[in-house]
Design a protein around this nucleic acid. Structure first.
Length: 264
DNA sequence: CTGGGGAAGGGGCCC
DNA sequence: AGGGCCCCTTCCCCA
């Protein structure tokens, strides 16, 4: 998978930007400058739209996906209906409303006492961990928060096939498709503000991470860390075959691919 | 070919 | 819950 396949490139990617025009000899960039460079994140309408997360599909453990999936993913029609066996986050009002329903994904039990009389406590039992709840709302909460989400990655991305255990993780992932953070200078788009900030350093020349062993400085902490390995006598990554060590995993991989180790 | 720098992606953790 | 940050990783390019 190409590293930058998610990045919207609004310029000829084969050419490097002319940084010399923007080159700032001083390493420090004021917050004001930074703010002026960072384009206010004005999400595209579709980013703000509830449609964004509408295609989240959450199958319950005992359900199979409905068929066919609606192709229209508008906020209303796109949402799977609870009657289809889907679990979707509901308001309290909804929970109460559906307490009286009997979804396909839970076990509804009526216990019988030894005397033969039917017990008054009817339980909603999780099909996965068998915990029982007196109300459907209780069961629903349990499943959404703990059990089912972990048993099955329940939040699916509409742009790709990735699945996540939490809505937050999915939202974060979706940003890698929508790329709401746009560089004011070159139009390049990023998924997160701090990625954009790191990119802006390529324009400003700011290098806040300096090496304590030499005079080099870096715009990115990870690159400094990689650089520090070059000062280290002990290289971190070792070939299992020939014991040769490398400062980076990518170099070890290159070494392995070049034929030292038998391809697996 | 190899090593290293630069840029970027993305998951996870913490506040 | 969401944003910021940390860390790891990958890819490209160049000396």
């Amino acid at each position: 998978m190409p590293r930058s396949f998610l990045v919207k490139k609004h310029f000829n990617s084969s050419k490097k930007p002319n940084y010399s025009e923007l080159d700032c000899p001083t390493a420090f960039v004021s917050q004001q400058l930074l703010k002026s460079l960072v384009m206010p994140v004005i999400p595209q309408p579709e980013v703000l739209s509830p449609v964004m997360y509408s295609p989240i599909t959450m199958w319950t453990a005992s359900d199979s996906p409905p068929s066919p999936l609606p192709t229209d993913l508008s906020p209303v029609s796109g949402y799977p209906s609870p009657k289809d066996g889907h679990e979707i986050p509901r308001s309290d009002e909804d929970e109460h409303e559906h307490e009286h329903e009997q979804p396909a994904s839970f076990t509804f039990t009526t216990t019988t006492s030894p005397s033969g009389a039917s017990d008054v406590t009817e339980k909603f039992r999780c099909a996965l961990c068998h915990k029982s709840y007196s109300t459907y709302a209780g069961l629903l909460k349990h499943k959404q928060l703990h059990c089912e989400a972990h048993a099955r990655k329940a939040f699916s991305c509409k742009y790709c096939e990735k699945e996540y255990v939490s809505l937050g993780a999915l939202k974060m992932h979706i940003r890698t498709h929508t790329l709401p953070c746009v560089c004011k200078l070159c139009g390049k788009a990023f998924s997160r503000p701090w990625l954009l900030q790191g990119h802006i350093r390529t324009h400003t020349g700011e290098k806040p991470f300096s090496c304590s062993h030499c005079s080099r400085a870096f715009a990115d902490r990870s690159n400094l860390r990689a650089h520090l390995q070059t000062h280290s006598d002990v290289k971190k990554y070792q070939c299992k075959n020939c014991s040769k060590t490398f400062s980076r995993m990518s170099l070890l991989h290159k070494h392995e691919e070049s034929g030292c180790c038998v391809a697996h």
